[in-house]
Amino acid sequence: MKVHLSHPERSVEIKGPKRAKEVLRELNLVQEAHLVIRGDELITEDELLKDDDLVEIRPVISGGSADEGFGVRGSGFAAGTTHPSLLPRTSNLVPRTHFLP
């Protein structure tokens, strides 16, 4: 079967029939971070995929911005400056490297 993957975008060929969870395992992908879509239908991990199926494995993880970032002042809530309840006891904006050992 032809399996379409993202990040980076590519297609791979996997020999069927196989259950969706076996395809994920073969590609070393965790279920919790992906959806398996056959044609345009979402399927569960026990679904059997055949050689003539067109499958998309779609990653679901996003983020990384300061909007949500730990240790980055504001955490998506403050404006203009940091919301006071999010202020650390030490001073001003610290780059991410601050948290490295």
Binding site: V30, P59, I61, S62, G64, S65, G69
Partner: peptide, 21 residues
């Protein structure tokens, strides 16, 4: 679906990956 190109390599993504495992 595409990831923001600026977020690549962020610690948040690493923590999410660990939690998902």
């Amino acid at each position: 679906v595409e990831e923001c190109p600026m977020a690549k390599g962020s610690k948040m993504l690493l923590y999410k990956e660990v939690l998902n495992r």
